[in-house]
Nucleic acid binder design. Structure first.
Lengths: 186, 186, 186, 186
DNA sequence: TGTTAAGCGAGACGGTACGTCGCGTCTTAAT
DNA sequence: ATTAAGACGCGACGTACCGTCTCGCTTAACA
């Protein structure tokens, strides 16, 4: 019966939050500034998101590029296509800058944890498709544990970028894939 | 005429900080509470550490177990010994809980970045010793890039624990090592 | 062509406002709560009363007992009858609790000032009738300034109740009347 | 052992509050503006006064002129001197503007009530001295109830100024005193 | 006897102020 | 000179009401 929540206000706040997220990082995103920038009142922001973290959760999602599974005809090609996309978008872009914040926040905030989970799941789902295609093509054994498999392929890359904080070169990615694939088909 | 800085105060503050770090996480560690708990005045804390992060840096170090390189006679044995140690100490313990905070903080704070670097280096140094021993024994080729190699072995494990936030089972570690080693000797 | 304003809504809002006025005092009467309690929408309330104070004005009037001039045959009797009524209604009841609010609001809000004026006038008009009757009966001199006269009789009573905030006993009223009447006929 | 509360901060905040009180009235005095004007941080203000009303209480006291009892040699002279002072200071000045706010607030806030009580007591104490001197001089009977007596003299004046909100002329005061004194000595 | 404009409930909106928390700096007295 | 204690300026937090503004729905007066 009442007026519906303004989608416009929501969008404007989200854009402002998303921008500030990239500019200042999670810890320095303030609701007050989101309000000022977006022209949306602080109270309205709190009507849409019960607390700071909830807004951040959504703002992060805005920054995520939602990639689909490639199908190049070979496992190697699919992986390179996938990680090539990740390198260009997520890991070289804004998200790489934000993920550690999420990981950190996830340690205390269940909502953050579930966001992180969702982000991970989406990427893992793509990985599973790639692997399933490879299994179908006979490039991989059927009996491999998918969680381990994803860990072996994705782990070194995420580790390099997020934990080690070193640039994610094509050489590094290629070398890791070489080793992992060699180990998998062996 | 001057009194030296009290090592006692420093230690008490550090212990309290370390405890709170584990209890509440980095973001909710407040200097005020460290002061209250430890009985050390806030002023004194700021005298010993110029800012919050510096204290956290030291508090993290307290929680780190400093492991040396094993020498079991085989690469496989060395790795299992090493990661077994890590599983028991760092990654199953408090540090896994703290690393994301450091990673996050490293994004903004150079000092944090260098702490993270130091922690990483220490572990990487051990890894390098293990690898060198393996090369010496003829278990590995000489031409492998050490950074890639460490990434391939450590990446999946850290990824599982820190980013995926899933329990680090012996099966997972074993499976990852199997694949990586197979790929490396191939 | 249009529907007339609902008298029912007006009444319900007014009752709720009047209740809250007594329960919480003017300063803590919120439109939101009047709306919630009465079941009348905030919009509707604002349609009936342009602002908070207007509603309060009307709510006060609801609480007022409108007394007529007594005619006991003597000034003394009339005054005792009149103030007896005031003691029982206004000053011992809710209104005494509200008057200071009005007085305060009158300082800023002309509408409030005029309400206060109206309330005062009504009572003063009764007083004037009583005095006129007394003059007619020869109990009082003709040349007395009516404003002063009312002030001398009403002042001590209102002062006791409203400013001093002490209970308005029959003894106090009698004693004040004794003195004032003695002074007036002297 | 710690630093004492800054008397300077307290004073500056109080002055700003006192000014705003007169400028805007009790209801529109905001802590934020007191902070801005005084240059004292809002948190500091809250350290000194637990809540808005406490600050107002003190700010009102600043505006009060603390008058002593006159001794002109006659009751009449003393009263005129006293009320002349009140007319010049309190009732024509800022306090008359503030008292209704206090009276209103006293209805809900015990601290306000006690402030009002204190203000009243101080003035009543002076009145009692005046009366005692008159009794000593034989101008008044000994058996008069002091509360009633003060009410009879002060009531009409306060009523005129505070409740009726009409100007407090010398004629009105004189006329009231005439009647009251006539009644008292009768 | 429909039509239709206003009234209505619900509640979202932009604001302003609230009172609180933690930061990093400072002052003071005591050791 | 260093410490414990804690006050200080600052900036952000999340909340409460204000008075205004849509929303659909209901309803009485007019056509």
């Amino acid at each position: 019966m009442a007026r519906p929540r303004s989608e416009d206000a929501r969008r404007k706040a989200l854009v402002a939050a998303s921008d500030l997220l990239v500019e200042r990082g999670v810890a320095h995103l303030t609701i007050d500034e989101v309000a000022t920038r977006s022209g949306v009142a602080k109270t309205t922001i709190y009507r849409h998101w019960p607390e700071r973290t909830s807004l951040i959760v959504d703002a992060v999602n805005v920054n995520l590029e939602h990639v689909g599974p490639p199908d190049t005809g070979s496992l190697r090609g699919d992986l390179e296509a996938f990680f090539g996309g990740m390198i260009r978008s997520d890991l070289s872009g804004n998200v790489a800058h934000i993920i550690p914040c999420l990981v950190e926040a996830a340690g205390r905030d269940p909502e953050m944890a579930s966001l992180l989970e969702r982000i991970g799941s989406e990427r893992e789902r793509v990985m599973k498709t790639i692997v399933a295609q490879a299994v179908e093509r006979g490039e991989l054994r059927v009996d491999l544990d998918i969680e381990t498999l994803v860990g072996v392929i994705v782990g070194p890359i995420v580790f390099q970028k997020v934990v080690r904080r070193r640039p994610l070169t094509e050489e590094y990615v290629t070398a890791c894939l070489d080793i992992a694939l060699a180990g998998l088909v062996a």
